[in-house]
Structures are given as structure tokens and as C-alpha cells.
């Protein structure tokens, strides 16, 4: 699903983001990306989304080489990746339902499909009652659920989460974690960057540890350490 081959990213001026990273994550896998702040987790995820190009090496997502992708294909690439962020990245002026609907609209789905799918997915994440609230009126945990719902409503083959529990208390984090787990069970590949030790240790999934832009450990059923 994701293949990084000798990927190096150097930011100007001479700051190493990633160095010689080789990672392969298979379809349907669940993987944690762990490491301190500045270890390269966010660089990894932003490269996946093609927010910028690697300095060297090649990245393949869902069988498509990102370096050879035309600019026009970029939106389609991103529609195939559901994204969840630490700061939720919800559109502040739109209701919960509209935020989720936006992800469907950009793909050109008909209004009827949108009216059907949005309540369905919000029910799934437990926010059926809050559809017409604005993000501000929700708790942090609820906002992150909206964000997960938006990421998953298109049923992407890959879901990427960048510290999704970073702003949440432990109990709420468990709820989000469970959601991601359930999404993974439907066959969606999930890659989650985190430094939530407890969560990683509890899940016993694949752990890819980064430090100073290098992969220092990559093990199945790993621990945070």
C-alpha cells in the first residue's frame, strides 16, 4: 500500500527531515509511526500526501508513484487517503454535517448520496445528534470524531492519522483509537503517527520508530519503548 524507497528529505537550509527511509506497509495493515517531536513523523505523512517532494528516493502509494504523478491527479490522490490531524482541521464555519459532506462534494457525489451517507457515518462515530452543530460547540474528542468521519466517508483505501490523540485526554483517546481500529477491520490500511506510549503498547501492532529522520526500529506487534 505504501512503499518508501531510499527516501531522503532535506529542508532548506540543510535540515534533515528524513534520511534513507525504506518502509513497506501492506494493504490492510495497521502501523504506528513513533518518535519524538522532530524525528520525522510529520515529514513522512506530508510526503505521503504529496504536500512536497522528497529530495531523493521514490514513494509509491496504492501502486502509484508520487514523483511521476501529474499535478492534476493530486486531488484524486488525496481523496484516496483519509486524513486525521492533531488539530482536527475542520472548517470552522460549517456544521458537522457540512464538514463531512464537503469530502463527498469534492468527489462530485450527487446530493442524494450525500444526504444518505453523512448521517450514516456520523451515526457510526456516535455523533448522530450533533449533525447541525458547529465544530466550536463540540468537545475536542467529538471534533476528532467528526474529523475521522470525514476521513472515512469516502471509504479510502488508506487512512493517515497524525497524532490524532495528541490533544485528547486518555479516555477520549481510547474512543478514537477504537474507531481507527474498527476502520482498519474493514480492510482500510491505517498509519498512525503518535507518541502516546500507552496506546501503542496496548494495541500491539506494527511499530516503526523514527529518530533524527532515520528508521531505528521496525517490528510487528511492537512496543513503544
Amino acid at each position: 500500500m505504501i512503499r518508501f524507497e531510499n527516501v531522503t528529505k532535506i529542508y532548506d537550509p540543510n535540515i534533515v527531515g528524513l534520511q534513507d527511509v525504506n518502509v513497506h506497509i501492506g494493504r490492510g495493515d495497521f502501523a504506528f509511526l513513533v518518535g519524538h517531536s522532530g524525528s520525522g513523523k510529520s515529514t513522512f505523512i506530508r510526503l505521503l500526501l504529496k504536500e512536497f517532494e522528497p529530495s531523493r528516493g521514490s514513494i509509491t502509494v496504492a501502486g502509484r508513484n508520487l514523483q511521476r504523478m501529474r499535478r492534476g491527479a493530486l486531488p484524486h490522490h488525496r481523496r484516496n487517503i483519509g486524513c486525521v490531524f492533531q488539530d482536527f482541521k475542520l472548517l470552522p464555519n460549517r456544521t458537522v454535517a457540512e464538514n463531512v459532506a464537503y469530502a463527498l462534494r469534492v468527489t462530485g457525489q450527487p446530493a442524494r448520496a450525500i444526504r444518505r451517507k453523512v448521517p450514516e457515518i456520523l451515526q457510526l462515530v456516535g455523533l448522530g445528534e450533533k449533525m447541525s452543530n458547529l465544530p466550536d460547540e463540540l468537545s475536542a474528542g467529538e471534533q476528532q470524531r467528526v474529523s475521522v468521519a470525514r476521513a472515512f466517508v469516502n471509504h479510502p483505501s488508506l487512512l493517515v492519522a497524525d497524532e490524532p490523540t495528541g490533544n485528547l485526554d486518555p479516555d477520549t483517546s481510547v474512543g478514537i483509537m477504537q474507531l481507527l481500529y474498527r476502520i482498519n477491520r474493514t480492510g482500510t490500511t491505517v498509519l498512525m503517527a503518535t507518541h502516546d506510549r500507552e496506546m501503542v503498547d496496548k494495541m500491539r501492532k506494527r511499530v516503526i520508530a523514527l529518530e533524527g529522520g532515520k528508521v531505528i526500529r521496525d517490528e510487528d506487534k511492537g512496543l513503544y519503548r
Binding site: P75, H77, R78, C83, L90, Y102, A103, V106, T107
Partner: peptide
């Protein structure tokens, strides 16, 4: 601009 950035991350085309 944040709004625009989010739209792009969700996969909206430029004209959208």
C-alpha cells in the same frame, strides 16, 4: 487560507 488548505487536503480540485 486555513480553510483553503483544508479543502486541498480533503482532495478538492483547484477549480472546486
Amino acid at each position: 487560507r486555513r480553510e483553503v488548505e483544508i479543502m486541498r487536503l480533503v482532495g478538492a480540485t483547484n477549480w472546486f
